[in-house]
């Protein structure tokens, strides 16, 4: 198979085979980060631009390291000091930077569809690093990679995604990815935060964490995004923590058979108690490590498709 897509906008638009192809490619990139010289010359002479219209530490750092380990030049575009704040549209911003001959944009924006809009207007590769409540494809790819590493497969693995499904682009991408690869996905959270009709995406729904835990090999805790809770879907964070947070007691009841994942950054004390985040069956730091390999694969393939 040869990679033909110049952009990565979401897992909704990829086939099972394409997703597996990225994961396979990522596997060979993982070794690069464990060597003493953590660099290969594959993308030497290419320029990658981080276009982050929304704050991010982990994803931005991860992409930056991934690009650097492939020997690309990376430019991080600071939106607060840019002409966007002077009223320039995102398409104009992207086109102006592209006129300086760059090869790839990594775009994060608070509005769903922004990366796709840019991708339709530039020749450069565009990778979605999170757009509104739409998708965060590289996060889901690294989640898939992590699960495949631990279980050796994804088919029939039972994963429950717990938290604010409604606002979560991570949940959306994970549901696309895991269902396409044959996992058994369940979503769990307070009723106002579970979108109506989500069953159509091929997932089961429960409002009780005990039921989610009972039927899972992995529980995937989403971050409760405090900034998105202004619409009063939750009575209080404390209440959420009481009904859906993983504390020592809930952990004790499940620890022998369940892995814990989280996309970060964690709200310690809300969806996950500190002592649980450090446990041996927490895959949270594996996810971060694998993020580099997966993003290296995505950069290599998308930029490579342009010749």
């Amino acid at each position: 198979m040869k990679w033909e897509k110049k952009d990565l906008i979401g897992l909704e638009y990829l086939t099972k085979r394409e997703i597996e192809y990225i994961l396979d490619t990522a596997k060979s990139f993982k070794g690069v980060s464990t060597r003493s010289v953590k660099k290969v010359p594959a993308l030497r002479g290419k320029t990658v631009v981080n276009l982050f219209f929304e704050p991010s530490t982990r994803t931005k750092t991860s992409f930056e390291l991934a690009a650097k380990r492939l020997s690309a030049d990376v430019l991080s575009f600071d939106v607060s000091t840019s002409s966007v704040s002077k009223g320039e549209t995102i398409v104009d911003t992207a086109k102006n930077i592209e006129a300086m001959k760059v090869d790839c944009f990594i775009v994060r924006h608070s509005v769903a569809g922004a990366p796709e809009l840019i991708s339709r207007n530039v020749e450069a590769a565009v990778i979605n690093a999170g757009d509104g409540c739409h998708e965060h494809p590289t996060q889901a790819l690294l989640d898939l990679f992590t699960v495949r590493e631990v279980f050796g497969k994804i088919k029939d693995v039972r994963i429950s995604i717990i938290g604010d499904i409604l606002h979560s682009r991570v949940a959306r991408s994970d549901i696309w990815g895991f269902t396409k690869l044959g996992a058994k996905v369940m979503v769990c959270g307070p009723p106002p935060l579970i979108p109506i009709g989500i069953e159509k995406m091929g997932v089961k729904v429960t409002y009780h964490i005990e039921e989610a835990i009972k039927n899972s090999d992995i529980i995937y805790l989403l971050r409760i995004q405090k900034e998105r809770q202004k619409e009063n879907f939750l009575t209080s964070l404390k209440e959420y923590s009481f009904f859906y947070g993983i504390d020592q007691d809930r952990y004790e009841s499940i620890k022998d058979k369940i892995f814990i994942m989280h996309p970060g950054p964690m709200n310690r004390g809300v969806e996950i108690k500190s002592e649980v985040a450090e446990k041996e069956n927490s895959l949270i730091l594996n996810q971060v490590t694998n993020g580099i390999a997966v993003r290296m694969a995505v950069l290599y393939l998308t930029i490579g498709s342009r010749k």
Binding site: K2, V40, A42, G45, G304, S305, R306, K307
Partner: peptide
Amino acid sequence: TLYRDDFSKIGANP
């Protein structure tokens, strides 16, 4: 593969 000099010519290796 990652050390080849023809990436710009033939693109990502399958």
